[in-house]
C-alpha cells in the first residue's frame, strides 16, 4: 500500500483515536481476490480523509460460519474475545468489508455486550457520495457498460440494505440492469450458512452456477457484488461458463475506487 494503514494498537500508542474502525474480515485479510477489495476500501477511506484503523493481527473471525454450522460454543468464544478487544479500544463505529461480519457484529454481538454502530462498506460509500466527498471523476470507464448487481443475502434480506449498493451504481454513467431474482427475491450465491467451507450437497447443479446463469442471461459487462464470499462464488461461476474475458465480477468498493481514479 502506498500509505500506511494504522492498527488500533499503533493509534492508541500515538495517543490518537480513529473516527471509524475498519473490520477487514478473514476473507478480506487472507483471500487474494478479496484483498484487492480491502485495499480499495482503504484507499477510499484514505482518499476522503477519514481517520480509520484496523485491528491487524488482533482481529479474529466473528464466529459467523461456526454459528451457522451449529457450533454456538465456538461462536460465542470468538464473539466474547472480539467484544472484549473492541470494548477495550472503546470502539464506537465500525465499517466492515463483509456482509457476514456486518450482520454478526451488528445483530448478534449486542446481547453479548458489544454495542457499536456498524455499517457495511457500501453504506459508507453511499454516505460519502451523498456528502459530496466522492465524485465519479473517472466515470467514463463505466460509460455505457451494462452492470447487474447481485444482492448478498446477509446485506439484503438479512439486514434490508438494498438501496445503498444501487445508489453507488447509479452515480456511474452505466446501465444498471436487474436480474429477475433481485432484492427481497435475490438468489443466494450458495456460500452462506458455512457453505463456503464445504462441498455442496448433491443436486442438479451448484447454486452459483444457477445464479451466474441468470446474471449472464442479461449479457452484462460487469457483475457487481458486495461480499467476498459472493465474489468467490460468482467468479467461479463466470469461469465455469468461460466468460471471464467478457464479464468482470467487481466489488462495489472496486467500482467506486475505479470511478474516482483511485485504482
Amino acid at each position: 500500500m502506498e500509505f500506511k494503514v494504522p492498527t488500533m494498537a499503533q493509534m492508541i500508542a500515538d495517543g490518537e483515536t480513529p473516527e471509524i474502525l475498519f473490520w477487514v474480515g478473514c476473507a478480506g485479510s487472507f483471500d487474494e481476490r478479496a484483498q484487492k477489495i480491502t485495499k480499495d476500501i482503504s484507499k477510499i477511506l484514505h482518499h476522503v480523509g477519514l481517520k480509520f484503523a484496523i485491528l491487524g493481527t488482533e482481529e479474529s473471525c466473528t464466529g459467523d460460519p461456526a454459528k451457522r454450522a451449529g457450533n454456538e460454543f465456538l461462536f460465542q468464544m470468538q464473539a466474547m474475545a472480539n467484544i472484549e478487544l473492541l470494548n477495550a479500544y472503546d470502539i464506537k463505529k465500525i465499517v466492515t468489508g463483509c456482509p457476514h461480519c456486518f450482520n454478526t457484529i451488528k445483530n448478534e454481538y449486542p446481547e453479548l455486550g458489544g454495542n457499536y454502530e456498524v455499517i457495511h462498506h457500501t453504506q459508507l460509500i453511499q454516505g460519502l457520495i451523498d456528502e459530496g466527498k466522492l465524485k465519479a471523476s473517472n466515470g467514463e470507464f463505466f460509460k455505457g457498460k451494462k452492470i447487474t448487481y447481485h444482492d448478498p443475502c446477509y446485506l439484503g434480506r438479512a439486514n434490508g440494505v438494498y438501496e445503498a449498493p444501487r445508489e453507488i451504481l447509479q452515480q456511474l454513467d452505466a446501465d444498471l440492469v436487474e436480474m429477475k431474482r433481485c432484492k427481497t427475491n435475490g438468489l443466494c450465491c450458495g456460500a452462506g450458512g458455512a457453505q463456503m467451507f464445504k462441498e455442496p450437497e448433491k443436486g442438479d447443479k451448484d447454486i452459483n452456477i444457477e445464479r451466474v446463469e441468470e446474471a449472464l442471461s442479461l449479457s452484462p459487462n460487469i457483475i457487481a457484488a458486495g461480499c467476498p464470499f459472493c465474489m468467490t462464488m460468482l467468479s467461479d461461476g463466470v469461469k465455469h461458463f468461460e466468460k471471464e474475458n467478457e464479464v468482470q465480477v467487481l466489488d462495489l468498493a472496486e467500482i467506486t475506487a475505479k470511478a474516482n481514479g483511485l485504482s
Binding site: M1, C26, T57, P65, A66
Partner: peptide
C-alpha cells in the same frame, strides 16, 4: 481453523495484516 488461527481458513493469524505491506 477458527479455534487455532482465528480464521476459517488455514492461514496463520500473524499474516492477517500482510495486505497492508
Amino acid at each position: 481453523n477458527i479455534e487455532t488461527n482465528g480464521t476459517p481458513w488455514k492461514f496463520a493469524n500473524s499474516e492477517r495484516a500482510n495486505w497492508t505491506n
